[in-house]
Computed example of a mutant assay.
Amino acid sequence: MKHIYRIEGMTCSSCIANVVKSLGSLDNVTDVKVNLENKEAEITMSKHIGLSDLQNVLQEKYTISEKTPVKKVASNTFSDFEIAQEKSKFVQLKPLFLILLYITVTSILLHYKDWSWREFMLDFMGLFYIVFSFFKMLDLKGFPDSFRMYDPLAKKVPVYAKVYPFIETALGLMFLLRFEVKIALIITLIVLGITTIGVTKTLLDKKAIRCACLGTALKLPMTEATFIENAIMIVMAILMLIS
């Protein structure tokens, strides 16, 4: 049984994480999907839960009200809620595509006179980490909540989510300065490998959550683009380790 509720008071990815965690803690709640733009939460229940019970588990700043129930649809169709999300994916991911384009072009320009694939990849990875960690640094308080929603290690070790932006910064500097590159490559495989496992599970479960790759400053949905972004870095790390 699915119901859509309107939730007032949500302002960022941290709010989404809090709402999903709180509502998901209730017995008989099997799934929670939150849409920040529409201020809506789609809750799947095995047994009906009263509105007052839902409100009780939420923080005081959030107010929940019931909308219309979502009818079951055939397995090869999508609800209007899902279709609207799909249509807006490209627009929402535009900042991510632009950042990756700038990083790629910059890395090419640094070596176009004396081309080297290895040097290009090292600079790409270094700039990737520095730029992405910068956006995470903008909200060090809110980022851990968003990151813990899908990263397996961050869920079990909360402090890992707090230090993750600093890990990315350190890796970026190691690549750009060509300092202990092999160690940086191994750490990259471990760190991004763990995150990719969480991203893959989120995509397979079709959960509508925010990606924390650019922190909470930019509201990016968790999509296949997040998986591809991590996969590119992992492939580069493997190629350099075996070359």
Rank of each mutant, 00 (worst) to 15 (best):
K94V: 03
T223F: 03
H111Y: 13
I232H: 02
L23P: 06
G50S: 12
L100Q: 01
F124P: 01
I197V: 15
S14D: 09
Q85M: 05
A17V: 03
P144H: 09
S52V: 07
G9Q: 06
T44S: 15
A41H: 00
V19Y: 01
I187R: 04
L204H: 09
L185Y: 09
I183Q: 07
Y102V: 15
A212H: 04
E40C: 08
G126M: 11
N230D: 11
E224P: 01
D123Q: 00
K71F: 14
Y5G: 02
F120A: 06
E37Q: 14
I228S: 06
S133L: 01
P221L: 06
V57P: 05
T68G: 03
E40S: 14
F175I: 04
E86T: 11
I130C: 03
S52H: 09
D205H: 07
M125T: 00
L98Y: 15
M45V: 15
D27T: 01
T104W: 02
F90Y: 13
P158D: 11
I108R: 11
T223M: 02
Q92H: 09
V32F: 11
F166Y: 15
F147T: 04
A225Q: 07
F175G: 01
S22M: 07
V73L: 10
M121T: 09
D53H: 09
T11Y: 02
L153C: 05
M240P: 08
K71T: 15
K94C: 04
G198P: 10
L36H: 06
K87H: 07
R178A: 12
I16G: 03
N18K: 11
H3Y: 09
I16M: 13
T30M: 12
K89V: 00
L101I: 12
I187M: 12
S116D: 14
T200R: 04
E66C: 06
K21A: 04
K72S: 10
L189K: 10
K33H: 07
G193E: 05
A184F: 02
M125K: 03
T30Q: 08
C213T: 02
V105M: 03
I187Q: 05
K219E: 10
M149L: 01
L36K: 10
C12H: 07
F128G: 00
L204D: 05
T196A: 10
E224R: 11
Q85C: 07
R178C: 02
M10G: 11
V20R: 14
D27F: 00
T196Q: 15
D114L: 12
A170N: 02
L109A: 04
I190Q: 04
A208F: 14
Y5I: 01
I130M: 11
L96W: 03
M174Y: 07
K71Q: 15
K39T: 02
L93R: 11
E60Y: 04
V105H: 05
V163A: 10
K156P: 00
K39Q: 15
G9H: 10
T169P: 00
F134C: 10
F166E: 08
F143H: 13
T11F: 00
L109F: 13
V91K: 15
M240L: 15
S13M: 04
E224V: 11
T11P: 03
I130Y: 05
